[in-house]
């Protein structure tokens, strides 16, 4: 210990005695605002929109940024090989583009210089837009109302609450030409909930057989899709599709009215 203390002391003295600091050591640090490595680092609640993508694409003088929109996915490609570190893009969209002072840019392959950020399109349609789309489709296909018969095959009544909500004045599904009818004989669509309890198996089959062709069966809720938390036991059958053929599955526990409407729209698109 004592020996090492002594040596340290000696070194200290030698530094103090040095007149000029090592010039290389002084310049070792990189300034914080140095424009070095451009990365795509979105903020927590950043949403990539069509317009932002286009603005970014146009902001780049060397076309290092390209924007793609294929309907379901929005993609931003950033080619660091083309980037001249002008910083234009960061000014346009500071939520997505971050310019760091890092310099570890080198890559072994050319393709690795291209960074990609993709975002699936957030489901932007409102309940109303969905409904209007549905309405025009129903008009085209049926020329009249679409009729739905709801069948509870053992649900906990959570899904029923949401299906009932479709009929309240807030969601008011009837304005889109959809009616809930009292008998399967009048129905185009069967909306089935519940894990299909064994006690309801026979009734469900009879209701399915009484529905005129062509008919669509929609399984509503996690229980109807798979048996849900109840699974497949002595009293349940583990999903509607074990009893009748299912065309569309709407998961959720329970699915909210918007989700139900989207499922019905999907079922119509299947025709």
């Amino acid at each position: 210990m004592k020996k090492s203390d002594k040596t340290n002391h000696l070194i200290d003295i030698s530094f103090k005695s040095a007149a000029i600091k090592d010039p290389l050591k002084m310049d070792d640090t990189v300034a914080a605002n140095y424009r070095g490595y451009v990365i795509l680092d979105p903020d927590k609640d950043f949403v990539l929109k069509d317009e932002t993508g286009k603005i970014l694409e146009n902001s780049c003088p060397t076309h290092a940024i390209t924007f793609q929109n294929d309907g379901s996915n929005l993609k931003i490609h950033l080619d660091n090989g083309k980037c001249i570190l002008c910083g234009n893009c960061q000014v346009k969209s500071p939520e997505l583009i971050k310019i760091t002072n890092k310099f570890n840019l080198a890559k072994k392959r050319r393709d690795d210089l291209i960074e990609t950020f993709s975002m699936s399109v957030p489901f932007g349609k409102t309940y109303d837009e969905l409904g209007q789309e549905l309405k025009s489709k129903i008009n085209k296909i049926f020329g009249r109302s679409l009729t739905i018969r709801e069948i509870d095959a053992g649900s906990c009544n959570g899904c029923e609450i949401e299906i009932n909500a479709l009929n309240n004045s807030v969601y008011d599904i009837e304005r889109f030409g959809i009616t809930f009818v009292a008998s399967p004989r009048h129905a185009d669509i069967l909306l089935v909930t519940g894990p299909a309890s064994k006690n309801m198996e026979r009734a469900l089959k009879i209701a399915y057989d009484s529905t005129p062709n062509p008919k669509i069966v929609i399984a509503v809720g996690a229980c109807a899709c798979s048996g849900g938390i109840f699974g497949n036991n002595y009293a349940t059958t583990g999903g509607i599709d074990n009893i009748v053929p299912v065309n569309v599955y709407i998961p959720g526990c329970p699915p909210r009215p918007q989700a139900l409407l989207y499922g019905i729209l999907m079922a119509i698109n299947k025709i």
Binding site: G154, G228, P254
Partner: peptide, 30 residues
Amino acid sequence: LGYTHKGIEKLAESMSINDVVFLSERISGD
């Protein structure tokens, strides 16, 4: 009645205590 019998009481015996909380929520959704 009995049409919606899902075997909840029996099912609970095969689940862990913490999972049964979810089951109990689904005895009756409302």
